[in-house]
Design a protein around this nucleic acid. Structure first.
Lengths: 206, 206
DNA sequence: TTGACATATGACATAGTGTCATTTAGAATA
DNA sequence: TATTCTAAATGACACTATGTCATATGTCAA
């Protein structure tokens, strides 16, 4: 988390800083980002940066968190509108994220360098790593009658699976610079495979 | 790829270097690894390191590639023994990887910092990002009659899905330091869900 | 013995991080 | 208004790490 000093800043200076950081993290991934570029862009001295943030990562995760909050909001909205149909929701959500123009490069750099820590932060937008309050909240919005599950425990794993496949689809889209419709096509195929199951039931021999 | 100079090295010096690099990459992930530690451990001067490798990454990906080759070999062996049953194979393979003691920390650091580039390298052990020769080879070994697919294209996506879920399970195991049996349990649940499908067929209304 | 080539070496230039002593600003108090 | 106190700003600096390069060393063939 940024330091109190950052939050005490006048709104416009805060904006300037956020903008500068976002610009740098859109240019290159976290590890290649340079504080020098951020402060040059924001027009602040080096020492100030460290008044506001612990370090580079602190600034990055602050931005990522902000973005994630927005995504979570969108996600819940779509889920509600779709009466808890998780697959319909994922498909709509997927399209929205890959279509975001403003955050395109930030997202690209983030997805292509998705360490576990980044993934954990990001995940909060539409699922959860652990069975916690966040999971319970999502769970309550999902229409479980549509799913092939026995109990809450299986729901947890279902969401994990959907999240894993969705992440990979994001990465694929950004890594191979797929056009939106192509990425959507692949994603739809995968979601359908997930729905119907990958295994063929061997018919009982007569 | 390491430079020719590296491959020209006498076997024991090569071994020393590999061992030193592996030790460092087991201690910390790629980005935190320091060349200073590697050369200190290997007892070579700084300049020599750059005679052998382009940079830190070069050394890391060399090691990762070597490990991946072994994994691929194991994977194909298991797949053959299981007559092309991809699910049985994944489950056996998963257990073997998470049980590896020798490479435990190297794998842990790798999985918890799985950038797209690392993932691509790693994937080669049991699947492929793109539909290339590697995919064709795997494809030929897989018993497709067990799978709920229409054509080779769907097979490609099935493998992508299985790979995505398996990766996430690896990450989970290492991130949360799960005991082997617990990780296996979760993985089995997920593989079963994948097999049977996540969606419940709504019975035709009478 | 000499020349040509491959390899080894460590000092150095460069770049980036995080700290800290000092300065400045602004609010609170007398 | 003058004084004091605290939060914030600042940039020089110490430190760490990378990658390069001029020079030294070793090896083999002619």
């Amino acid at each position: 988390m940024p330091k109190i000093t950052f939050f005490n800043l006048p709104e416009d200076k805060k904006e300037t800083l956020i903008h500068a950081a976002k610009k740098e993290f859109s240019r290159v991934p976290l590890y290649d980002a340079s504080i020098a570029n951020i402060i040059k862009e924001a027009g602040i001295p080096r020492g100030s940066f460290y008044q506001y943030f612990e370090d580079k990562e602190d600034a990055f995760f602050f931005l990522l968190n902000e973005l994630t909050k927005e995504h979570k909001y969108i996600f819940i909205h779509i889920l509600t509108r779709n009466n808890g149909d998780i697959f319909e929701t994922m498909i709509e959500f997927f399209r929205i994220i890959i279509s975001e123009e403003e955050n395109f490069n930030f997202l690209k750099n983030t997805f292509l360098n998705m360490t576990h820590r980044i993934e954990s932060t990001f995940s909060r937008s539409f699922s959860s790593n652990e069975r916690n309050e966040s999971f319970e909240k999502f769970s309550s919005l999902i229409d479980k009658s549509l799913l092939n599950i026995l109990d809450a425990n299986e729901l947890f794993y279902v969401l994990k699976i959907i999240a894993a496949v969705t992440f990979r689809s994001f990465v694929d889209k950004f890594a191979r610079d797929l056009p939106i419709e192509e990425a959507m096509n692949s994603y739809l195929i995968e979601m359908n495979l997930l729905k119907k199951g990958l295994y063929r039931d061997i018919p009982e021999s007569t």
